[in-house]
Design a protein around this nucleic acid. Structure first.
Lengths: 152, 152
DNA sequence: GGCGTCGGTCCAGATCGTCCAGCATTTGAC
DNA sequence: GTCAAATGCTGGACGATCTGGACCGACGCC
């Protein structure tokens, strides 16, 4: 799926996506046109979804994060989902199996803000909120290594 | 905290962090040295944590994601945390208030893999697992707008 | 008013990216 | 086994981009 060169390119780009083609090229031992071509293909194949920037919420004043589990009241599922999508403070939301329909991450500046935001969905869903005290693992990609699950 | 120019630069970089300084410059109406200088300052201030690349887990064969809530058995908290950190399939882990001590995201290739990974912590913690069925909101940064929470 | 600082521009030399032609290796058909 | 096509790489040339330095104006502070 990915060869060793692709993997090394991705590793470098995960660390710094603004690395120049030339430098990537020397890191993996190719010419820069080859690297450009490989990156283009990784994008085409959808392996690279985007080159982006990681922003520190703290630095923007979002000193608090919470994980919110959301159980919409009967018949309110779609309204709730739409509501969540429209609130930009939700930084992530997954629809999951089990009692909790959604699990979402919320960025807020204060407990007051948290309360205000949750109030907006309180009449359409039950929520349980857990404040994040620490982040042992910050968002990271899955392992790139050995894509050998089908090979015997 | 951030002025309008910074915000626009960040917006552009969130969409594509490989955008050239020159193009960023025309987008916000500055010269490219100024843009370079602003980016440098955003990094210094810690607003920009990293330029990185978003990888599609599906494209690497990780067809399944799960949210796992983890309650270490008495006295096992640190061992469990260390274990989690060392398993690269955990793509995210937060330490939270409440009964569940950790909430983590797991990337796996199959239900079998899920079972195998959870077995590795089964004797040190109780876990509840929810399979992700859909992602209404994929990871996104908090709103950059109007950093005016302290101003009356 | 004088002065330092901050944030900006402009310019030139250095660096980088892209295009293209050409070469080696692999693949598949016969 | 051989040929042709396809694939993936390289090197060089040229245009685009980045970088560092000189300089400038606005602002706040003695």
């Amino acid at each position: 799926m990915l060869d060793d060169l692709d993997r090394r390119l991705l590793e470098s780009l995960i660390k710094d996506s603004r690395t120049s083609l030339k430098e990537l090229a020397q890191q993996v031992g190719l010419s820069s046109p080859s690297v450009a071509e490989r990156l283009r293909r990784l994008e085409d194949r959808g392996v690279i979804r985007a080159f982006t920037v990681e922003i520190d919420p703290q630095a923007l004043g979002y000193t608090l994060q919470a994980i919110v589990r959301i159980r919409p009241l009967p018949g309110k599922l779609h309204i709730v989902q739409k509501l969540i999508e429209e609130i930009p403070e939700f930084g992530e939301c997954d629809k999951v199996t089990g009692d909790d329909c959604f699990v979402a991450r919320l960025f807020v500046r204060s407990i007051g803000d948290l309360d205000k935001l949750l109030d907006r969905i309180a009449d359409k869903a039950e929520t349980s909120t857990a404040i994040i005290k620490a982040q042992p693992i910050r968002r990271r990609p899955p392992p790139l290594g050995a894509t050998a699950s089908s090979k015997p």
